[in-house]
Amino acid sequence: MANVFVISDHHFGHKHIIDFESRPFSNAEEMTETMIEKWNAVVNKDDKVFHLGDFSFLNKEKTASIVSRLNGYKSFIMGNHDRGRSRRWWLDAGFDEVSEHAIVYGGFFFLSHEPMYMNKHMPYVNIHGHIHGQKYEGNQYINVSVEQWDYTPVSFEHIKSIVVPSEEQ
């Protein structure tokens, strides 16, 4: 059975993100190669990955080259840095699915780029990126920015284990 993963905010080609977020890379090329290796170390060809935005600052050709090197079926939710490009641009760059808006996964998880408003009485979980090294309190928010997960896609099984205690699963 294929696994499902989520991740966000790679910022491929954005050399200044290294300083902005204290990323442990000497340059953008090292960052790119390390993040591709970490993705492919956990994601198999038949797995699905939801990328929650801010994927690449590169042109279409260079972005497509990176996308083609990443394992799995890639579903993309556009982030704030991606919205200047059309949905078609991202499909042409190699993503299998592209959404301009948040989506609901499994009837319980809201997948979005920016964190969504969730009050404590709502029975849902918001899996998001955008805030990089920051975290919201509580189990209703899971930040999947690369900085939170050692630049590696995180499995939905792991997220479920955080959100739902094992005796309830």
Rank of each mutant, 00 (worst) to 15 (best):
M35D: 10
N80T: 10
L111S: 08
V43M: 11
H16P: 08
R83Y: 10
K160F: 12
F110S: 01
I159Q: 06
N143E: 00
A102F: 09
K160M: 14
P24N: 06
F55T: 03
W90V: 03
H81W: 00
D46I: 05
V125Y: 06
K48P: 03
A102W: 09
E29C: 10
P24F: 07
V144Y: 03
S26P: 02
N40K: 14
W149E: 05
R23D: 01
S8D: 05
R23H: 02
V42Y: 02
A41R: 15
W39A: 01
E30F: 03
I159W: 09
D46W: 12
I77Q: 02
Q148F: 15
G106N: 04
K62Y: 10
M122E: 14
E100P: 05
I77N: 00
M1F: 14
F55P: 00
E33K: 09
Q169M: 12
K48Q: 07
S68K: 12
S75P: 00
R83N: 14
M116Q: 10
F12E: 04
L52M: 09
I142T: 01
P153N: 05
L91M: 13
G107L: 09
I18S: 00
S75I: 07
K74G: 04
E167R: 10
W149L: 14
E114Q: 14
S112K: 04
E114P: 07
H11G: 10
F108A: 15
F50T: 02
F55N: 01
F12D: 01
A93V: 02
G72C: 13
E147Q: 04
G138N: 13
F55S: 01
G133K: 13
I7D: 08
T32Y: 00
F20V: 10
S166M: 07
G53Q: 05
L52H: 03
T34L: 04
H14L: 10
I131C: 08
H10I: 12
Y136I: 15
G107T: 14
G133A: 13
E33Y: 13
R69Q: 13
E30M: 05
R69H: 06
W39H: 13
A102N: 10
F12V: 08
K160Q: 15
P123H: 13
V163L: 11
R69V: 09
P123N: 09
I142S: 05
H113P: 02
V164T: 08
G79W: 02
M78E: 02
F109S: 04
G84L: 07
E37S: 09
H14K: 09
Q134R: 14
S56G: 06
E167D: 15
S99T: 15
K38A: 07
A102Y: 05
P153M: 06
K38T: 14
G106M: 01
P123R: 07
M1G: 15
P165Y: 04
K48S: 11
I159F: 01
V6L: 10
